[in-house]
Design a protein around this nucleic acid. Structure first.
Lengths: 254, 254
DNA sequence: CGAAGGATTGATTAGTCTCAACGCAAGTGG
DNA sequence: CCACTTGCGTTGAGACTAATCAATCCTTCG
């Protein structure tokens, strides 16, 4: 693993994630360290974190590993709605809602921090900067969700999968989880299918095509992106929705 | 037009929308009245409110009429991402972002309130109750976006369109914009197509089928829902994601 | 070694798209 | 007031993307 592409003076994944919004003070980073140190859970792979219908009592932050948000229709059809990687906040202020309208589960083993209502309030009150950064993170989450809607609604199978690869690769870069043109990629073809609204069989054939086209390689839970630029082109990928360009920052991947 | 199904002591559409979250005090409602009274714009139908790339300086609130959020791919394909009706808040705190990653435009003529950064801050600081209600509204917006992802990703054309009808009908009920089993419905079949990821031609055929099945009628910009329950069933519609059941409230439509 | 999860392949079909034309109603300009 | 335009809905024929069903293979792991 190489150094994070966005500067951060700390190893706390949440600080790292939020500093994509802008520089945080030492006090802010200390505050965040406190927050995510209080209640940490470790969960095995493929394990529910919270289920549709549950009353949310904490804000979850992924410290390590991959998780997913998903929704299941009455007849069992499943849609994956987003992926969480290191530093991702599940939903700021969820506890305002009476019940979850979707579920969240781990993909790999996950180290998870839980932030209570009280701690969250306190943190937001203590630092306007963090409050802003958390709003930013929330706005980015919605923006990603919108992009997924567009992805499934408008793009072909090939473009959809390429787009998913682009997004994850860029997001992983931003938190230092890429290594050159490679990264860990623990999703199965079935996961990719459920995320893109395709069938597993079609995902398989499409990925083979992408391999034949020399764009990527995907084997042993590892993704290699041979030509990020070409991949972005065929995916019609525009990274603006990730809002990583705050305060003059610029990601190296592009 | 009949009385709003959710009680509200005021006609301010934003108050009405937010009181789906819970009862607001008179002071809160007055504050909201002030906010949306300051800068009001009136826009003609099919007119851009803000475009992708623009720097957002205000929070927009739809007071009257219908608007839409959409995104356009480099080659022109268009995805409608959400519809705004009376009382809907475009994005709390958008001005945190450097640039819009999507566009918003009117569908019908729209009366619009703009809330400035300063006013927004002031309002949130003045009333924790309003702050909470605004978070709720934001969380509901994301929840709707997730449901749209699921809709396009998992449902068939017939189910998708039925689901869209259910959602809009319920949302309109919640702000008193339904009249029995009817409501204004200014979307063209092309709009419905762009929102559901289908072609206009296929939307046309599918709606004809729904008419033949006696579920709905749609003519002259007016939607009639003959059997909301059957419609909800075929759409696999579960209203939980709209989070309208706060503080013991219950919508009459169901 | 057997079991299980995941990836791959093949054959067939269904759902949706594409392209093209036409109808109808409302609005516009001469 | 009529001819023309424009926007929207409707219809038909044919093509194609992606789904379905079913089998096989490969890898990992207890």
């Amino acid at each position: 693993m190489n150094r994070p592409l966005l500067f951060s003076g700390t190893d706390n994944p949440l600080s790292l994630h939020l500093s994509a919004f802008g520089k945080l003070s030492n006090a802010d980073r200390d505050l965040l360290d406190d927050m995510i140190g209080k209640r940490v859970r470790v969960l095995p792979a493929r394990h529910d974190i919270i289920r549709e219908g549950d009353k949310p009592n904490y804000i979850n932050v992924v410290l390590d590993g991959w998780a997913q948000r998903y929704k299941q229709l009455a007849d069992g059809r499943r849609q994956i709605l987003s992926f969480f990687v290191s530093g991702d906040l599940c939903d700021a202020n969820v506890f305002i809602l009476k019940a979850m309208d979707h579920s969240i589960s781990t993909i790999t083993p996950v180290r998870l921090a839980e932030i209570s209502k009280q701690d969250f309030r306190q943190m937001v009150d203590a630092s306007p900067r963090i409050a802003e950064a958390l709003w930013w993170a929330e706005l980015v989450t919605v923006a990603i969700q919108r992009e997924w809607t567009t992805n499934i609604g408008q793009r072909t199978a090939y473009e959809r999968i390429a787009h998913l690869f682009c997004e994850l690769f860029v997001r992983l870069s931003a938190v230092g989880l890429t290594d050159g043109c490679e990264c860990e990629f623990p999703l199965t073809q079935t996961d990719i299918a459920d995320a893109t609204g395709l069938t597993q069989v079609h995902v398989n054939r499409t990925i083979q095509e992408m391999r034949r086209d020399g764009l990527i390689d995907l084997r042993n839970r590892r993704l290699t992106v041979h030509h990020l630029h070409r991949l972005m082109e065929v995916a019609l990928f525009n990274p603006n929705y990730l809002h990583l360009d705050n305060e003059g920052r610029h990601l190296d991947v592009f």
